[in-house]
């Protein structure tokens, strides 16, 4: 026995239909605009550690301390193609430490010993202090404290080390806790093009 649809049933169908249409429309509308991945991004022109010209100021380590993750999602990244490959790298060595008999500062700058280096290219045994080095940052150790970033500044440093968000770790919180405390408002949402998307 088939029940006659009541007025209430019909009204329900109409509302549901309209609702689904609205949601579908909203989906299309939103997706059309969402051609890229939105993500937290550090503006290198704002961050005090990265920003060129901000020398002789205290390192800001809030990226290391204020992420919700136990090990911050922010890492120091050395752009190899912009690195001077200096032997006495002011981001690798604590330049204020005593210089040893080998002519090198005796202490390293990174508090977590996350930077390793390797001599590259031609090595002149008579001129050890002018060899070139490749500086690699260990992603498992680095917590984005920014000490090396501040170290690699003009005039000697070329600014090749920057802080960047590691998106394989970042939770992409709506309310990034670092962005909340960043004194330079350097952590902002930015469209990041997905390769192949």
């Amino acid at each position: 026995m088939k029940k006659q649809p009541t007025r209430r049933d019909v009204l329900g169908h109409v509302v549901r239909g309209t609702g689904l249409l609205v949601l579908g429309g909203a989906a299309v509308h939103l997706v059309r605009r969402a051609n890229a991945e939105g993500a937290w991004w550090i503006d290198p022109t704002k961050c005090v550690n990265i920003r060129l010209g901000a020398t002789g100021v205290e390192v800001c380590d809030l990226c290391a301390t204020d992420c919700v993750l136990p090990l911050s999602a922010i890492r120091a990244v050395n752009e190899f193609s912009e690195c001077g490959r200096c032997c006495i790298c002011p981001a690798y060595y604590d330049v204020r430490s005593e210089v040893g008999p080998d002519g090198l500062p005796s202490r390293k700058l990174c508090p977590r010993d996350a930077i390793t280096r390797e001599a590259i290219g031609e090595v002149d045994p008579e001129d050890p202090l002018n060899n070139f080095y490749e500086y690699t940052i260990d992603e498992d150790k680095c917590n984005g404290c920014g000490a090396c970033v501040m170290g690699c500044k003009e005039p000697a440093g070329l600014g090749s080390i920057r802080l960047e968000v590691r998106y394989d770790v970042c939770l992409d919180c709506n309310r990034c806790t670092i962005a909340q405390v960043c004194p330079d408002d350097a952590i902002v949402q930015k469209a990041i093009d997905l390769p192949g998307a």
Binding site: A39, S81, I120, L158, D168, P195
Partner: peptide, 24 residues
């Protein structure tokens, strides 16, 4: 004043930097 690869010598090639891509 970055030393170019041929100045570094021994066939050195500047490696690519791991770019922080969004979550896969």
């Amino acid at each position: 004043v970055v030393p170019p690869d041929d100045d570094i010598g021994e066939g050195y090639k500047t490696p690519a930097v791991q770019r922080p891509l969004p979550r896969e």
